[in-house]
Design a protein around this nucleic acid. Structure first.
Lengths: 348, 348
DNA sequence: TTGAAAGCGCTAACAA
DNA sequence: TTGTTAGCGCTTTCAA
C-alpha cells in the first residue's frame, strides 16, 4: 500500500505558480504579494497540504527529533522521566524517539547506531546495567552528536548530566532504617559499575558510619540486571539471610529490584517490617497499596527528564561548540509508610 | 553543534570514483568490478560510513518506521504490548516511534498528524478514552496510510484489529466472583464508548444473567479518564456504596482503574475480600505483592503487540491494496489470588 | 565496468 | 513580486 501525499509542486501546478513561490507563500515570506499568499494558503488548507518533513530534514540536516535510550519503559522512574522529556520536547518543536536497551549492552549499541544513523539531533541516555565500556558513546559524541546523560550517567564523558541526589537519598533511607531500630541493613542494588549504584552505596555507607554501625560487605548484593531477573534478587536475599547476623533492614535500589525483593521476602516468609524493615529507591505510585504499604525514596523523575531535555536542546541549538557542561542534581523525597517502621523496636 | 557525517560523495572524492559507482559498490551491484568493490567497501568500513536514512526515505518514500499511539506507556498492558511490537518490528527492519495520547482526544489528533506527516509507514493505534469521533483516523486511512488497531479498536473503520477476548475475560472474572459468594458486583470501567468497555460490560452482564443475578445499572461506573484521575474512581466507589444494596464484589477494568480502586477502598476503609472481593482486568506484575494479593484477568499483551505488528507490516509491504481484513482475538488468563476469595462465604 | 544526470520534496541564492 | 536553478544524499536510468 502506498500513501501519496500532496507536494508543493502539485500546488504550483494547480495554481500556475512556481514551486519557490509556493514555498515562500507557505512560509509567509515578505516578498510574496498578499493575494498570492492568500491563494496559496487557502488552496493548501483546502487540500490539507503537509510539508514533507523528510525533505526538510535532508535540506536542513536537522531532524527535530531527540532519541531516548533507557533500559525499560515499564519502570515508573523512566516512564515519568519520559513524560518530562516529552513535555519540553514538544513545546520546543521536537519529536521524541524512545528506545529500550532492556539492560543489554549489545542492544544498547545497536540502538545507538540506529538512532545516530537515523540522524536524531541529539540523545538522552541512561545507560544499561551491562554497560561498562563507553567507547560507543564517546565515538558518536566526538563526532559531534549532542548527548545528555541522565540518571545512570557516564562520568568519563564530558557533557551535561542530570541526576537525582542518589547519595543523599540513600543516606536518608539508610538512616531512617537505623532510627527505626535496624542494626544490620542489607542493600540490594544494580550492577556495581553503574553511577547510581556507586552513589547510593556511598550514601548507605555514610549513614552507617555516622550512626556507628559497621559496614559489612556481605550485606551488599548486586543484581546485574537491575532486578529484571527475579532469581538474581531472590538469591541475593537468601545469601543475606545466611550470614551469622541476619539483616533486620533492607534498602533496595530501583523499581524492579524493590518489587522483586518484596516478592522474594514473601516467598522466604519474612514479615515486613518486623522481620525486616524495607525501604525502596523507587518511583512506583503503588507503594500505598502494597502489603505492607511501602516506604520509598522518590526521585523527581519528571523534572529530571525536563532538565535533561532543556540542556540537550540548548546544546543542539547552540551556534558554537559547547564547552561548559553542567551536572545537575535534583533532590529526592523520603516517603515513610509502614514497611520501614518497626512497631516496637524504634529507638526513642 | 553539528554532526558532520560522511557521504557517498566523500568516498567518491577520496577514491577518485563517481558517486554512482560508489553507491553501486556499496550495494554489491553485479556491474562493479571486484577490485573497485573491495576498495570501496574497505574504505567505507574504515571511515565507518553509514548511509543517510533520510536521503533514502526521500527517495523510496518509505521510512521503515512504525508509529504507535497509546494512552500511556506507564501502564503494564501497553508497555508489554510495545515490547511485543518492538520484537517483531526490529526483526523486520522497522523502527518504532512511541507516542502517548494521555487519554486526550486533542493530543491524539496532534500526534496523529505529527506521525503521519513524519511519514511513518504505518500506525498501531489504541484509541484514547476521550475519543468518540474517528474522522481523524478515517481521513488518514483513506489516504492510504496503513493502520492496525489493537486493544481499544474502532469498529467503524475497516482494517485489521487485534484484541484480547474482553468478553470472555470479563465473563470469567465476574463468574468467579459470583462463585465466591458475591451477590452484588460493582463494575468500574473506562469511558462507555470505548470498545473494551463495551465488550467487558457485555461479559459482565452475561455472567450475571447466567448465574441468576440481576443486572443493576447503578453498579456500573465509568471513569472517563481510564483511572488517570483518581477522584473519578473514588467517587464511583462512593456512589456504589451508597446504594441500598452495597456491593460485595468489584470487577475493575484496566491497570489504572484497578490500582485507583485499591487505593480508594483503603481510604474508604473497606476490607478486601471480606467487605468486597476484588478482581482487576490488569497486566500488573505486582499483583502478588499487593495487599491482599490481587486476582486479575491478564491479557496476552506481548502477543497482541506482535500480532498487530505482523498484520501492519504485511499491509505496508503488500503490493496491491489490502481488502481482506482480520480481527484477531487472543485469550485472557484468570489468575486467582486472595483479593477475590472470600474465606467464609464461598458457595460450595 | 564506470560515469553523468535526473529526481525524490524542499529551500534559498540569484535572476528577472 | 515571481521564476529559475542548484543542492541536501542517495539510487537509478541512460550513455559511454
Amino acid at each position: 500500500m502506498k500513501f501519496e501525499p500532496v507536494t508543493i509542486k502539485d500546488i504550483g501546478k494547480a495554481l500556475g505558480l512556481s514551486t519557490s513561490t509556493v514555498s515562500r507563500a507557505l512560509r509567509g515570506s515578505y516578498e510574496i504579494s498578499a493575494e498570492t499568499k492568500k491563494l496559496v494558503l487557502e488552496y493548501a488548507e483546502k487540500i490539507n497540504y503537509r510539508p514533507n518533513p523528510i525533505a526538510l530534514s535532508l535540506k536542513e540536516r536537522r531532524n527535530h527529533s531527540l532519541g531516548i535510550i533507557v533500559c525499560e519503559i515499564a519502570n515508573n522512574f523512566f516512564s515519568q522521566a519520559i513524560n518530562g522529556i516529552e513535555s519540553i520536547a514538544y513545546n520546543r518543536g521536537y519529536h521524541v524517539i524512545i528506545s529500550q536497551s532492556h539492560e543489554s549492552y549489545e542492544r544498547e549499541s545497536v540502538i545507538l547506531d540506529h538512532l545516530a544513523s537515523r540522524s536524531v539531533d541529539g540523545l538522552l541516555i541512561s545507560v544499561s546495567s551491562e554497560t561498562k565500556d563507553y567507547e560507543h558513546f564517546r565515538q558518536l559524541y566526538e563526532k559531534g552528536l549532542p548527548i545528555v546523560f541522565f540518571d545512570r550517567i557516564v562520568n568519563e564523558i564530558n557533557t551535561h548530566k542530570v541526576i537525582a541526589d542518589n547519595f543523599k537519598g540513600a543516606f536518608d533511607a539508610t538512616e531512617h532504617l537505623i532510627k527505626n531500630g535496624c542494626k544490620k541493613i542489607a542493600h540490594i542494588t544494580s550492577a556495581p559499575y553503574l553511577s547510581i549504584s556507586v552513589e547510593r552505596l556511598e550514601g548507605y555507607k555514610e549513614a552507617l558510619r555516622k550512626n556507628g554501625l559497621e559496614y559489612d560487605e556481605k550485606m551488599v548484593h548486586y543484581s546485574y540486571h537491575g532486578g529484571m531477573i527475579y532469581d538474581e534478587v531472590e538469591e541475593a536475599l537468601r545469601k543475606a539471610f545466611k550470614q551469622k547476623q541476619k539483616p533486620d533492614g533492607l534498602f533496595a535500589a530501583g523499581d524492579r529490584i524493590t518489587t522483586a525483593c518484596l516478592q522474594a521476602l514473601k516467598k522466604l516468609d519474612k514479615k515486613i517490617p518486623d522481620d525486616i524493615a524495607v525501604i525502596g529507591f523507587t518511583n512506583t505510585n503503588m507503594g500505598e497499596v502494597f502489603n505492607p504499604p511501602l516506604s520509598v525514596v522518590r526521585q523527581p523523575a519528571f523534572e529530571i527528564g525536563q532538565v535533561a531535555t532543556e540542556l540537550l536542546i540548548s546544546m543542539i541549538e547552540s551556534k558554537r561548540p559547547v564547552t561548559e557542561f553542567e551536572s545537575k542534581t535534583l533532590q529526592t523525597e523520603l516517603i515513610i509508610r509502614e514497611s520501614s517502621v518497626k512497631v516496637n523496636n524504634a529507638k526513642k
